[in-house]
Design a protein around this nucleic acid. Sequence first.
DNA 1: GTGAAAGCGCTAACAG
DNA 2: CTGTTAGCGCTTTCAC
Lengths: 338, 338
Amino acid sequence: MKKTTIHDIARELNITFSTVAKALNDHPRIKASTKIAVKEMATKLNYQQNKLASSLKSGKTGIIGVLVPTLDVSFFSSVVHGIENVMNENGYSILLYQSKEQQAHEIKGIETFLQSRVEGIISSVSLETTCYNHFKELKEYGIPLLLFDRTVDEIGVPYVRIDDYQGGFIATEHLINKGCKRIIHISSQHNIKIFQERLRGYMDALSQYNIPIDDQLIITGNPSIELGMNCVKTLFENKIYFDGVFAFEDYTGLGVLKQLNTLGIKVPEEVKVIGFANEAFGAHITPTLSTVDQQTVKMGEESAKLFLKLLKGKNYYQDKAEGIILEPILIARKSTGE
Amino acid sequence: MKKTTIHDIARELNITFSTVAKALNDHPRIKASTKIAVKEMATKLNYQQNKLASSLKSGKTGIIGVLVPTLDVSFFSSVVHGIENVMNENGYSILLYQSKEQQAHEIKGIETFLQSRVEGIISSVSLETTCYNHFKELKEYGIPLLLFDRTVDEIGVPYVRIDDYQGGFIATEHLINKGCKRIIHISSQHNIKIFQERLRGYMDALSQYNIPIDDQLIITGNPSIELGMNCVKTLFENKIYFDGVFAFEDYTGLGVLKQLNTLGIKVPEEVKVIGFANEAFGAHITPTLSTVDQQTVKMGEESAKLFLKLLKGKNYYQDKAEGIILEPILIARKSTGE
DNA sequence: GTGAAAGCGCTAACAG
DNA sequence: CTGTTAGCGCTTTCAC
């Protein structure tokens, strides 16, 4: 069935389509009575405005591209949830793309967005991205870009993330306060700023409390339960003593708990463990896992709000990129003896 | 900066824009040399096809609307993850909308999709939807619609879901096999088919094993940890004996475990518990929670595949709606004594 | 108040 | 092999 257009409405009412267009857009110079007539006819004919046409003409699509590594990780889906909420309230729609942690997909996603003439892009950089030209070009083209969580300074665009340095610091400090002296830090093997910041927070906390930094105690790998398990196994086999573990994300922390349990090492009595991200399972496992909350939904909402605020200003790209740093929140639970 | 169009390319090359258009679309009657020249110029000028214009003209947007209650529940985000994967591989983009479990938002979402001229909609019905006209109209308009998980027969469109009856049956049967005689079922207060089917499976399993159905043992409420906790508390206070609980979803099952633990009732020795959905936390809590897996990512992928298959046929809406029923998979863990 | 007309950037006949 | 032409459905001056 053919969709009805403003021409159909015009024909029925014996007026021109341009009058119909104005009536539907509540143009001030259109008589109230014809506005009513037009709108009645519109609903009668099931008229739905063709946004393709109006966007083509007006140059505004009302669409924001959201590019994330995957939706199958609660962190990202929560953030997207927050983004969609705010964007939706402000009349924008979300075009969704998953990079699958691959640079090639990221590039394709941005290309798709450009072709769809999105009014801006909100993204979190994939782990395997090493070259940022596809993001930098957006800036040159004047397409608004905002990065959240996995931000990259070099790109120089507005950003929203938590203070990962602070998060790493308070997590480590918490372990120190609970009496830990030899604290393992498990981090990422990837060159991702947020993980490096957590590491920096870890090191500074140790320094501040006069605990020597031991390279043996810093281990890297790919975020996973297995990583946590393997770390503990290896440390144990190499007879490296430790009494605290700060894992850069909760699944790795979970692996640590599992392996400690397998080895019969008591948590929190012998070893205390803290993760990062406040994944849903942490509050329900035994022992409950201490962690650092990243305010995911809020991160999405703040991303959308900052984006819209900048969009409403004259030029999105100011002299220096504005950003929001959310506070990491320590969630102390049983795994650190709370 | 003004976006470059085929006219810009044409001007640079002293040919007409229609030749450029054909060259870019690899039209057979265009000389190889000019195709090369055009494509080189296109990349040189950073040309990006304007899909708004091409969609407007061709009537094909390559966009699918995905309407789900929320992304802040891992079930839905996993399914959307699966949908996006398959759609992306097939050259489609996803326009995302969350209904927030409200009929009004659902209606607005569909309206947005219609205005954006999506080529179809994949959705899961909100809990608070009582009137399905907004979905039925899509069928009348000939807009392809596919429902997953929370499907509604009355709407009469293609669907993908698991066999919830079977899921309810095997969950209950599992408890019976483990020796339970008085099995609580916690279900939804909403009139949602999938939950009613789980209930039906529960009742049939009891009947088949000659266990009387006792209305006292069937409780309804809103899916949540609190629901599970309150159910156990109430049963206990009313001195209603039970030795098994089948919760219609995992969070409710988790609440049951928590409250049983608080009351000092041993799981699985005194009471066995099984949930439904295989949420991420279930494998990591203590005791690990038995559950029924819904194959979420596969559900998304199958939804997209069936949708695309029907779309490629002559008419999407056949005589009778085709559907895929995925098999529920019993995940037996410690909470049922596995 | 309403109408006429131009044009957004592209596709797809049809003409040469 | 390339060019001409007519729209897709809308927004937006400018005229009346």
